[in-house]
């Protein structure tokens, strides 16, 4: 018990929360960009433009089938060889965005697929252009249906930021490792803290999604 009291000293806690802040920062920025890029790629794959959609689709499949760790390594260590040099935080954001965009693109494409074809036809016959129909009619419905899948992907993203410890991103897991690396008695308290902090963060995310989901289904009814 004494170990826990010592381990959760103000200094250590502050250090942990500094790490949590970096985790949050990298997650939020990556979620923002990967949502935009993922939507664009998902739509691009869905609309079936000759060659273009096929190429986008292949890129999505390529990225989806590689380990995120490898993409992190590549962004940080291999890209400088061709002149793209990024500091550790931007590198992590780029790697997370690339990986999660591809994951989101698939979710979004299947979300659009699930919207009945009649919706598009009806919207077009009411005089909307294809782009208008897509942005006003199809995508909003698709997003509504996708909320649970999207949020669980966001949760994955938050968890995956921990992998960036391998390129020394000073996020939550790395800071915890530094603390227990300096005093073995803090090992268990640090793992407990990690589990609790990640759980609270992600569970809050999933609760928010449930609230949104419920509110939306109420307006639909």
């Amino acid at each position: 018990m004494q170990n826990f009291i010592d381990a959760y000293s103000a200094i250590n806690l502050r250090y942990l929360f500094e790490g949590l802040w970096i985790t949050t920062e990298v997650s939020v920025v990556s979620i923002f960009f990967s949502f935009i890029i993922g939507t664009l790629m998902g739509v691009a794959r869905y609309v079936n433009i000759k060659y273009f959609s096929a190429i986008i689709g292949f890129i999505i499949d390529l990225i989806r089938n590689l380990p995120l760790l490898l993409i992190l390594f590549f962004t940080y260590f291999a890209l400088p060889n061709i002149g793209v040099r990024l500091a550790v935080i931007p590198a992590s954001i780029v790697a997370m965005t690339v990986f999660e965009s591809a994951m989101l693109a698939e979710i979004i494409r299947s979300g659009i697929n699930a919207v009945p074809v009649g919706q598009m036809e009806a919207a077009r016959s009411n005089g909307l252009t294809y782009v208008q129909a897509m942005t006003v009619v199809i995508l909003p419905q698709a997003f509504k249906a996708m909320i649970p899948a999207l949020v669980s992907q966001f949760i994955s993203l938050v968890k995956d930021t921990s992998l960036a410890t391998i390129i020394l991103l000073p996020e939550l897991t790395y800071h915890a490792q530094i603390i227990y690396g300096q005093d073995v008695n803090y090992t268990i308290p640090m793992f407990v803290a990690l589990a609790v902090l990640y759980f609270v963060f992600n569970y809050a995310l999933s609760l928010i999604s449930r609230v949104i989901d419920r509110r939306m289904s109420r307006t639909r009814a």
Binding site: I37, L40, A44, F52, P80, V84, R85, V131
Partner: peptide
């Protein structure tokens, strides 16, 4: 549909340009 494709092509070009602008001279040399 035509307009839509143009818009998409524009977005794609911008993305590629953005990606390439990151590649400056080789910093290591």
């Amino acid at each position: 549909m035509q307009k839509w494709k143009k818009w998409l092509a524009l977005a794609a070009t911008m993305l590629v340009a953005l990606a390439l602008s990151g590649c400056g001279q080789n910093a290591a040399s």
